[in-house]
Simulated scan of single mutants.
Amino acid sequence: MKTITTEALVLALAAMAGLAGCVDETARRDDSKSGSMLFAENCAACHGANARGHGDAESGLEQAPADLTLISERNGGTFPADDVLAKVHGYGGPGHFGDMPDFEDIGAGKKVMWETQNGQKIATPRALVEIVGYLEGLQR
Rank of each mutant, 00 (worst) to 15 (best):
S36L: 04
D56G: 07
Y91R: 00
R126N: 09
D31I: 06
D105R: 15
K33R: 15
N118K: 06
G98W: 08
N42P: 09
D56F: 13
V112W: 00
C43E: 00
G95E: 13
D30R: 00
M100Q: 15
M113K: 02
H54N: 11
S34P: 03
K33I: 04
H96Q: 10
A12N: 02
F79M: 04
D31S: 01
G21F: 05
Q120C: 00
F103I: 03
N50D: 15
A17R: 11
V84M: 06
S59Y: 05
G98N: 08
A44V: 09
C22E: 12
L19T: 06
E104R: 11
L61Y: 03
A123I: 08
A27D: 03
A27R: 01
I106T: 07
G48A: 11
I106P: 05
K110W: 04
N75W: 01
S36K: 13
K121Q: 15
C43R: 02
G95W: 12
D83Q: 14
A27G: 05
S34T: 15
Q117R: 09
R126G: 05
T26G: 10
H54K: 09
P94C: 00
Y91L: 00
Q63M: 05
M113Q: 05
G109C: 02
V88Q: 02
G90T: 10
P125T: 03
G92Y: 01
H96N: 07
A15I: 13
F79T: 05
A64V: 12
N75F: 02
N42R: 11
F103Y: 14
C22Y: 14
A14F: 14
A51M: 06
F39I: 13
V88S: 04
Q117L: 09
D67F: 06
D56P: 08
F103Q: 06
A40W: 06
Q120F: 07
G98L: 07
V129S: 11
G107P: 13
R29Y: 08
P65Y: 09
H47N: 04
P94M: 01
F103A: 03
M37S: 12
I71L: 12
T69S: 11
A20G: 13
E104K: 07
P101M: 14
D30W: 02
K110V: 07
A20F: 12
K121W: 09
C43K: 02
D105K: 15
P80C: 12
G18K: 06
A20L: 01
A108W: 15
P65F: 10
A57Y: 08
E115L: 00
G60R: 11
L19R: 14
Q63N: 06
